Simulated scan of single mutants.
Amino acid sequence: MTTRFAHATTTGRTHAQTAAAVVGAVFLVVGIAGFIPGITTHFGQLELLGHRSGAQLLGIFDVSVLHNLVHLLFGVAGLALARRRDSARSYLIGGGVVYLVLWVYGLVVGHDSAANFVPVNSADNWLHLVLGLGMVALGVVLGRDEARRRR
Results as ranks from 00 to 15, higher is better:
49 L>I: 08
147 A>W: 14
141 V>C: 10
76 V>S: 06
107 L>E: 11
85 R>V: 05
25 A>P: 02
80 A>D: 07
58 L>W: 14
35 F>V: 06
35 F>S: 02
137 A>C: 07
66 L>D: 07
72 L>Q: 04
51 H>S: 13
123 A>K: 00
26 V>W: 03
59 G>N: 11
136 V>R: 07
98 V>Q: 02
74 F>T: 08
88 A>D: 01
108 V>D: 02
105 Y>M: 05
54 G>V: 12
1 M>G: 14
36 I>E: 07
5 F>K: 15
2 T>M: 13
27 F>K: 00
82 A>T: 08
77 A>V: 09
140 V>K: 06
83 R>I: 03
36 I>Y: 06
80 A>Y: 14
61 F>P: 00
119 P>Q: 03
130 V>R: 11
61 F>M: 07
33 A>S: 14
2 T>G: 13
29 V>F: 13
150 R>E: 11
92 L>I: 06
82 A>Q: 06
63 V>D: 05
69 L>R: 08
81 L>S: 05
101 V>T: 07
82 A>M: 09
22 V>E: 05
62 D>V: 06
87 S>K: 05
117 F>W: 05
68 N>K: 10
47 E>Q: 15
132 G>I: 12
75 G>F: 08
64 S>M: 11
49 L>F: 15
102 L>Q: 10
95 G>T: 01
31 G>V: 04
